[in-house]
């Protein structure tokens, strides 16, 4: 996203980003005793990151963070599950909690730590990862879906995977003409095999039903982009 943004917006966004994240961490840490917690903090961080992406663009932000947000979410879930497993080590039931409180710690005074906090951090990470992933995917895919799919496929696709759906966009009264032309072109492209000759457009074939083209699954590989 390389939209022009005003310098004021950029500056304010940066400031808001840091403040929002400070607040988020504050909410996360005090969640056990005061309003706050993993969910709220996670949403706050996610919204601030999305705000930042409006300024710097999703691509540069992704480059900066390097990690795919969905991995953050996965790690979060893992942390939450493992935090639940901790009590098993001492023979307590799953998700049993332990809390410690020190009252006379230098500098910060009262200090609190408990396994619920670890769990909450997991929740926080899941919420952040999921929200950021949703918004980023939507932002980039509406501009360049092919690019998003390439990137995701390079990250996660199994080498055995094949696209399962591949069908023309036909059937809407709004785009019938164009879609029918597209279908006609596809038929021609199929007939011409791999040839790259641009198909003729403007064929009035709206009324003529296509003669039983193969189902989506049966198409030969040559057609795949």
């Amino acid at each position: 996203m390389t939209t022009q943004t005003s310098i004021i917006f950029q500056r304010i966004t940066l400031i808001v980003f840091f403040i929002a994240n400070l607040v988020a961490v504050y909410l996360l840490l005090r969640g056990h005793n005061f309003p706050g917690g993993g969910f709220i903090a996670g949403v706050a961080t996610a919204v601030s990151i999305v705000l930042l992406s409006f300024v710097s663009g999703v691509e540069s932000l992704s480059r900066f963070f390097r990690v795919d947000p969905i991995r953050i979410a996965t790690v979060g879930l893992l942390i939450a599950v493992l935090a639940g497993c901790l009590p098993l080590l001492v023979g307590k039931p799953y998700l049993e909690t332990f809390n410690w409180k020190w009252y006379d710690v230098p500098v910060i005074g009262e200090f609190y730590f408990g396994t619920p906090l670890i769990f909450d951090v997991g929740v926080y990470l899941v919420v952040v990862g999921v929200l950021v992933k949703i918004v980023f995917t939507l932002m980039t895919s509406t501009f360049n879906l092919a690019e998003v799919m390439r990137k995701e496929a390079s990250l996660y696709a199994s080498p055995l995977e094949e696209p399962i759906e591949e069908h023309p966009v036909v059937g809407s009264d709004i785009f019938d003409k164009e879609a029918a032309a597209a279908a006609e072109n596809r038929q021609r492209a199929q007939g011409a095999g791999e040839s790259k000759t641009p198909p003729e457009t403007g064929m009035k074939t709206t009324e003529a039903p296509a003669p039983e083209p193969p189902r989506a699954e049966d198409k030969p590989d040559s057609e795949k982009p």
Partner: peptide
């Protein structure tokens, strides 16, 4: 489908 209209969508044939 190039439409957001459920009525139009269900009135249409399936893409396959």
């Amino acid at each position: 489908w190039k439409t957001d209209d459920a009525l139009a969508l269900f009135a249409k044939k399936k893409p396959t």
